[in-house]
Computed example of a mutant assay.
Amino acid sequence: MGEQEQNLEVIMGLIINGGNAKSSAFEAINAAKAGDFEKADEKLKESDGFLTEAHNVQTGMLTEEAKGNHAKVSLLTVHSQDHIMNAITFRDLAGEIVDLYKKMAEK
């Protein structure tokens, strides 16, 4: 596999993991809204798993950069990083929303 194909595979992995993390976080909100807090917690953990995968890929990219193996930065690379950052923000917000639904259910 050539360098360009390898970079594309890494970038697409980031986009896919970011999208999956965001989707799982959204499912957690929906589950909490329906009162299924066990499922909500499960979906938040699932989201965290996708974000961990993305983080591991990013760490690999940073390690290569530190070794002097500079990656070509394309619009797709920037998009993948944006996707991850949005997923992290959405996951954090989803955790807060799930907590709010739990508190509302206690009353």
Rank of each mutant, 00 (worst) to 15 (best):
M1V: 05
M1Y: 12
M1F: 06
M1K: 06
G2R: 06
E3R: 10
Q4I: 15
Q4V: 13
Q4Y: 00
E5R: 00
E5Y: 11
N7K: 08
N7S: 12
N7G: 07
L8Q: 07
L8Y: 06
E9K: 02
E9L: 04
E9R: 08
V10W: 08
V10I: 11
I11C: 01
M12W: 09
M12Q: 11
G13D: 05
G13A: 04
L14E: 04
L14Y: 02
G18Y: 01
G18Q: 13
G19I: 13
G19D: 08
A21G: 05
A21R: 08
A21E: 06
K22S: 07
K22H: 10
S24A: 05
S24F: 04
A25G: 05
A25Q: 11
F26Y: 12
E27G: 04
A28L: 14
I29E: 06
I29S: 12
I29Y: 06
I29A: 05
A31N: 14
A31L: 15
A32V: 03
K33I: 15
K33M: 12
A34G: 09
G35E: 06
G35M: 01
G35R: 10
D36P: 14
F37D: 00
E38F: 13
E38W: 09
E38K: 12
K39A: 14
A40E: 10
A40N: 09
D41T: 02
D41C: 00
E42D: 03
L44W: 03
E46W: 09
E46A: 12
S47R: 07
D48R: 03
D48Y: 10
F50V: 01
L51F: 10
T52K: 01
E53K: 13
E53F: 00
E53T: 12
E53L: 14
A54S: 13
A54M: 14
A54T: 14
A54G: 11
A54D: 11
N56K: 10
N56F: 12
N56D: 10
N56S: 14
V57C: 09
Q58A: 01
Q58M: 05
Q58C: 03
Q58Y: 02
T59A: 14
G60H: 15
M61W: 02
M61I: 00
T63F: 09
T63P: 09
E64S: 06
A66P: 03
A66D: 07
A66W: 09
A66C: 15
G68K: 00
N69K: 12
N69G: 06
A71N: 15
A71E: 13
K72V: 08
K72F: 10
V73G: 00
V73R: 08
L75F: 12
L75S: 10
L76Q: 07
T77L: 06
V78M: 01
H79V: 04
H79C: 08
H79Y: 03
Q81K: 07
Q81D: 09
D82A: 00
H83N: 11
N86A: 15
T89W: 08
F90V: 01
F90L: 01
R91Q: 05
L93T: 02
L93M: 14
G95E: 14
E96I: 02
I97E: 09
I97H: 01
I97R: 11
V98M: 02
V98I: 05
Y101V: 13
K102T: 07
K103N: 10
K103R: 14
K103V: 11
K103C: 05
A105F: 14
E106M: 07
K107Q: 12
K107C: 10
K107P: 05
